[in-house]
């Protein structure tokens, strides 16, 4: 019956316009961030920072910035779960597949695929857009060796965040709440926590994501000292993220998913 549940979940994603809208938004974000990063290196003020189009690490940063759509992979995962409660279609889902673990697993598989596809498309678009844009600067050096590594990391992060989204969505069934809480967590809370204790960065979701994406930034200048590497490496970081997803999913299975659905 897992096969039937998977097919139903895939159809839900395919039929809903939101899916395409989110992929589009992620693609736009990836393209805009990579292109604007190239543009900002040309600002006079920035030239004090070690950022130049001839600099390999700067160009690596440009290529890596094409992965920024990953937040949308998380949102897609959240929607895969919460849309069902929002519209009351969860009832049909659980009537068709009474085993709620199977439903959750199928949703995770589909969300992983969606997240991977989203990251592949948006990263590819970002790479193409920035690759074309950078042509106007003859001295720019494109780090071709970085492309495959960044793409691989991007797709992996997309899949993992899709899974995490399903876990978060099962725990917080309210769609808006789930999205707001997870974005606040990613963009704000973790950043603040790191200020209080360095070691938190190592176990943070953001830290793990940057590590998988290979976009850990280590900048030391008179103006700034930034170090976003979590030191765990990409594979350990992937496992860390999957571990978090598993913990959230487990909590959801023993709490919210036990609840009555109707």
């Amino acid at each position: 019956m897992m096969r039937a549940t998977l097919r139903a979940e895939a159809r839900k994603a395919r039929y809903q316009r939101t899916t395409y809208g989110i992929v589009l938004a992620a693609s736009a974000l990836a393209a805009v961030s990579a292109v604007s990063l190239i543009a900002t290196t040309q600002l006079p003020r920035r030239q004090q920072l070690p950022m130049a189009l001839t600099d390999a690490s700067t160009m690596h940063l440009v290529v890596s910035s094409t992965t920024g759509g990953y937040v949308f992979a998380l949102v897609l995962g959240i929607l895969v779960m919460t849309t069902e409660f929002r519209h009351g279609t969860a009832i049909a889902t659980y009537l068709a597949q009474p085993d709620r673990r199977t439903v959750m697993l199928a949703k995770m598989v589909v969300a992983a695929a969606l997240g991977a596809i989203l990251q592949f498309l948006s990263t590819a678009l970002g790479m193409i857009a920035s690759g074309l844009y950078v042509q106007r600067y003859a001295h720019a050096v494109l780090p071709f060796d970085a492309y495959t590594r960044v793409m691989a990391g991007s797709v992996l992060v997309g899949a993992v965040l899709g899974i995490m989204g399903v876990a978060v969505g099962s725990l917080l069934r309210n769609q808006v709440l789930a999205i707001v809480v997870s974005l606040l967590w990613l963009q704000l809370v973790e950043g603040l926590l790191v200020v209080f204790a360095d070691w938190i960065g190592r176990w943070s979701i953001r830290g793990a994501i940057t590590s998988v994406l290979d976009i850990a930034v280590q900048v030391r200048t008179p103006q700034a000292a930034i170090d976003t590497s979590n030191g765990l490496g990409p594979w350990a970081s992937t496992l860390l993220l999957l571990g978090y997803a598993a913990v959230l999913a487990l909590i959801a299975l023993v709490t919210s998913l036990r609840r009555d659905v109707a």
Partner: peptide, 26 residues
């Protein structure tokens, strides 16, 4: 089953909604 609380996805057509359920119940 026909339940009053059972919902349908408002953004999808009747056909699409039913095709999702058809896949789910195989």
């Amino acid at each position: 089953t026909v339940l009053e609380t059972r919902g349908f996805h408002p953004g999808l057509s009747a056909v699409a909604n039913l095709r999702v359920i058809a896949a789910a119940i195989d």
